[in-house]
Design a protein around this nucleic acid. Structure first.
Lengths: 197, 197
DNA sequence: AATAACTTTTTACAAATGTTAAAAAATCAG
DNA sequence: CTGATTTTTTAACATTTGTAAAAAGTTATT
């Protein structure tokens, strides 16, 4: 569909941090001093299942997919957009290996922090501990939202919801991925799209 | 099935608290001083959707169901067993009204803490803030587990998983509820059970 | 511009699950 | 214990979704 690239969202790391939980200058500085901005090129898997992942990432620009691999099935749990945190959950919580693979679907800018250093901060600053608490709480809400969608809504409704929220996602992500995210086959998604016209 | 009641798990509140994140005597005392043990009788809905819920509950004894109501559909998100926390998520995180109804399926013992007081503690104690962070992180893992089950496994596998984990749940919870939890109709669950024999 | 590789849609058929209704089984109340 | 109520299973049929393969459309490369 030769439309050319769509303008995409961008977010500064400090804004991402502050949006989770406001911090005083000193705490903010401590967090920022641990952070490192990286560019991840298209189709790079930067968090891999079964491998320890040292970092928590915050997406500033681009789009990623979080997916699980099981036997020969691959299922997309979520897409990440600017402003969102990306982690290997079990790794972050227990320090063990996790299930998630996370791949940049476009060349993306993200800021990362070493989880071990972050956890030191958690132990030494009440404000940052509460920041980490809020981060976790928002993740709960995000994943609960996803589960509710899956439990309550048909694939067709979930598709509508997705394009309402991210209107140009079909121009940035191939339909096979979107079908996987919705939990249906690509054939079913094609049928849904055919009935929506 | 005239078997008589099955012995059920029990948990002390202090053990539940310590299992989330170890606390020093003083912090533990602060938490305990805010807590209040209550008995909730069978079939009582003690957290209601669209109503503010002042408390976070920790189940010591009994079994509860967390369910959403939408139009005329009712879907069970989870069963709670001793040791688990029960909250209205949006209420806990944002102070707004939530989607969850939580009902005691058996007469249950639980300890509750006022969310507002707990949040005061979060602001004033690094250890308790980290305790709250861990609480949230474990909730993420729990709900992620549930989502993965739903995404990767057939209803039949999910049923097997459930009875492996809670072998006597079919004696304590009616199959209509279990079907709802599994995300299938009761007819489908009957078919699953018929094929498992 | 032509070819190859990849993505999306369509088709035909199979399998799984839902719906409705009724029967069977289990449980509860008096 | 017995009848009433609730829960669970079974049956018949409809609908949805999956599978596999082909066709159509798109993108990338030479």
């Amino acid at each position: 569909m030769g439309w050319g690239r769509i303008t995409i969202g961008k977010m500064e790391f400090v804004d991402i941090v502050r949006h989770i939980h406001p911090l005083k200058k000193e705490d903010l500085q401590n967090l920022l001093s641990l952070s490192e901005t990286v560019q991840v090129s298209k189709n790079t898997v930067f968090i891999e299942a079964d491998k320890p992942s040292k970092y928590i990432y915050f997406l500033q620009e681009g789009i990623c997919r979080i997916y699980y691999h099981k036997a020969d099935i691959e299922i997309i749990l979520a897409f990440s957009f600017p402003g969102e945190a990306m982690i290997s959950l079990n790794n972050y919580v227990y320090g063990t290996r996790g299930y998630e693979n996370i791949e940049a679907l476009e060349t993306s800018i993200m800021t990362r922090i070493e989880i071990a250093s972050l956890q030191d901060l958690y132990e030494n600053s009440t404000a940052i501990a509460n920041w980490g608490r809020k981060l976790a709480e928002f993740e709960i809400l995000k994943i609960e939202e996803r589960l509710m969608q899956k439990l309550f809504k048909t694939a067709s409704e979930r598709y509508q919801d997705l394009i309402r929220k991210e209107s140009n996602i079909t121009n940035r992500v191939k339909l096979g991925f979107i079908a996987s995210y919705l939990g249906v086959t690509q054939v079913t998604l094609s049928r849904i799209r055919a009935n929506t016209r």
